[in-house]
Write a protein that binds this DNA or RNA. Structure first.
Lengths: 201, 201
DNA sequence: TAGGACATGTAATGCGTTACATGATTAT
DNA sequence: ATAATCATGTAACGCATTACATGTCCTA
């Protein structure tokens, strides 16, 4: 059987303490979703496949009328996860950002509308940063503490710092745009050139 | 007819100077690909659809035996693009990064193997930063100059600075990992805690 | 004269999301 | 009582990638 990235998400989540499909879903929502989304519709069939392959072991946990199935990694499953983590295929990235895409085409707009696109991007990053600060980082740190893990919290902080960096970048661009608009008396677009440069470093 | 993000990529690329399907493909490879990938198989049918909808106008350009079709935006097409850029739907992001995903699960590994994951992430970002510096930014600045655009070059610089930020973040983590390994005599994993904190800001 | 860039496609496959469905338990 | 959360799925759809196909022109 061929293992997909989704398989490894499931294996990895079981390894850091998730036990049921539902818990995997919640873990993902609170962390991995930002760099690897996966939905319940993928999780449950995946659990079945992994169990058939002997990588995880499931047991029924009937509490009252509510059924649920608890899983744990088998030694084979743990080794399979570790092998994947260690193997050297180039780690692919796919980034699909409608906000950046719109900004890329912003020359089609006048200055007032285009600065609005930067602002929308910044506000999104501010919202995300806020949710990292108040929800995701604390939850990840709780998990790290409970499970004795390090990278759970590290990646949550990465998400926070990344969004803060985006905010800073947007603010730099917004500053440049108003400055470029001033001397030309609000008329022209800013020209290509040095601009705000090293906003971060 | 319903317009998809791919439709707007095509419209947007025509707006900043691409003329044929092939040129759109090349433009995308040199810029938008990093925040919105799209392949030839999507571009050509899309051109057909947009022409049928009256958003672009195509003409045959037979140079010798080599056929090619040149397109330009119609006024309606340009207005459609501008409307999309101005409308306020939340700009969705999707990030799918196998490197970050692996790092997230790195607790399954020992310290030597897990630092290797950070290094792989950093090296990828370094490669990307290099390709931005030597290829993408120069190409984008040439386009900006030729077409009188601003955001083409801006977004290329964004890609460069973003990858440089990733490199800096990885270096911070790598530093923390070796420091955490030293006092414990190479035995333990680093614990949850303050760590390198504000590597950037 | 062979390889690479130019130029445009078709067909098959697969992956993932959306919408929908079901039922139990806990909190308000 | 009602809503929210727990818990697990099915079915349909659509979008995007992969592999393949074709032919031209230019350069080394």
């Amino acid at each position: 059987m061929a293992l997909t990235p989704s398989s490894y998400v499931v294996l990895g989540m079981l390894n850091i303490g998730a036990r049921s499909g539902y818990e995997i879903k919640r873990f993902v929502e609170l962390s991995a979703r930002f760099f690897w989304a996966i939905s319940p519709v993928q999780i449950y069939p995946e659990l079945k496949r992994l169990e058939e392959a002997g990588l995880i072991r499931g047991s029924d946990d009937q509490r009252g009328g509510r059924r649920r199935r608890l899983f744990e990694l088998t030694p084979l499953g743990r080794e399979t996860l570790r092998d994947w983590l260690r193997n050297e295929e180039d780690p692919t990235v796919e980034w699909r950002d409608k906000g950046l895409l719109k900004l890329f085409f912003a020359d089609a707009l006048g200055p007032e509308d285009s600065v609005e696109l930067v602002r929308a991007l910044r506000e999104r990053a501010e919202r995300l940063a806020r949710s990292f600060r108040t929800e995701i980082v604390p939850a990840a740190e709780a998990t790290s503490l409970a499970q004795g893990t390090y990278y759970t919290a590290l990646l949550a902080r990465f998400g926070l710092e990344f969004n803060e960096w985006i905010v800073a970048w947007c603010l730099g661009v917004e500053r440049d745009l108003v400055e470029a608009a001033r001397p030309a008396k609000g008329a022209g677009k800013p020209r290509v050139g040095p601009t705000h440069g090293e906003a971060s470093r």
